[in-house]
Amino acid sequence: MKRDKIIFYIATGLLSVIVLFSVYMYVFKHEAIVGAFTSLGYPPYLIYPYAGLKLLGLFAVWNPNFKALKEWAYSGFFFAFVLAFFAHIMVNDGGHMTAALALVFLIVSYIFNKRINK
């Protein structure tokens, strides 16, 4: 059980670092992100709401009291990372590895969250 908690906290911590870095970029490097979103084919008005949803998703993943909300957050992150992976592949800008890494951390976090909360 202790090993499972350690793996959960490491995976979720690394996932959080990736997500918080992207939120930081969305807010403080807005012009660069507008260019990235435009090159990926997304409208730039999605940047701030997307940053807010990522923060809410992290809150739900870390909070043990909201079990149903946590499932939705994991689901939302899953779809966001899969779509980001394929969007970066389509424009061939090299950003797909971060999305793939985030997806791996997300899956490990989800599996070990289930194991420690049986």
Score class of each variant (00 low, 15 high):
L40P: 07
A68V: 15
M25G: 11
L106M: 05
F105I: 04
F81R: 00
F105G: 08
F59C: 13
I6M: 05
F21D: 06
F112G: 13
F81V: 01
S22I: 08
Y48H: 13
V34F: 03
A87Y: 06
I116Q: 11
K118I: 07
G13W: 03
Y9E: 11
V61I: 09
F77N: 01
M25P: 02
Y24Q: 07
M90V: 12
N65S: 14
Y9L: 02
V23R: 02
A73N: 10
P43Q: 13
V19S: 12
M90W: 14
F81K: 06
Y110E: 07
V108K: 10
G13Q: 02
Y26E: 11
L46K: 02
V91F: 12
A84K: 04
A84W: 02
A11G: 00
H30N: 10
V23K: 02
I18Q: 07
A87I: 07
F112Q: 15
M1Y: 03
H96I: 09
D93Y: 00
V19F: 05
Y26R: 08
F66G: 13
V108S: 03
A51I: 10
Y50P: 10
G13V: 01
Y9W: 14
G95K: 00
L20Q: 04
K118D: 01
F77L: 01
I89W: 06
S39T: 14
L56V: 08
T38L: 01
V61C: 04
I18E: 00
F105D: 03
F59L: 15
N113V: 04
K29E: 14
A80N: 09
T38I: 02
G94W: 04
A51F: 12
V91H: 07
A36P: 04
G41I: 06
K114F: 09
I107Q: 05
K70P: 08
A60Y: 01
P64I: 14
P43I: 08
S16E: 09
N117K: 15
L40H: 12
L106F: 01
M25D: 06
T38Q: 07
W62R: 06
K114P: 11
G95D: 05
A68G: 10
Y48S: 13
K2C: 13
N113Q: 13
Y74S: 02
F105P: 07
N63G: 04
T38K: 05
K114D: 03
S16L: 09
K5C: 12
A68Y: 14
P64H: 15
F77V: 01
Y48T: 12
I47W: 01
P64C: 14
V104S: 08
K70M: 11
A60V: 07
F59K: 15
H96W: 08
L83C: 02
T38N: 01
K118R: 08
K70N: 12
A60M: 04
F8S: 05
F85C: 01
P43K: 02
I111T: 09
G95P: 00
Y45R: 10
F86I: 04
V23Y: 04
H88E: 01
V82L: 11
D93S: 00
L14P: 06
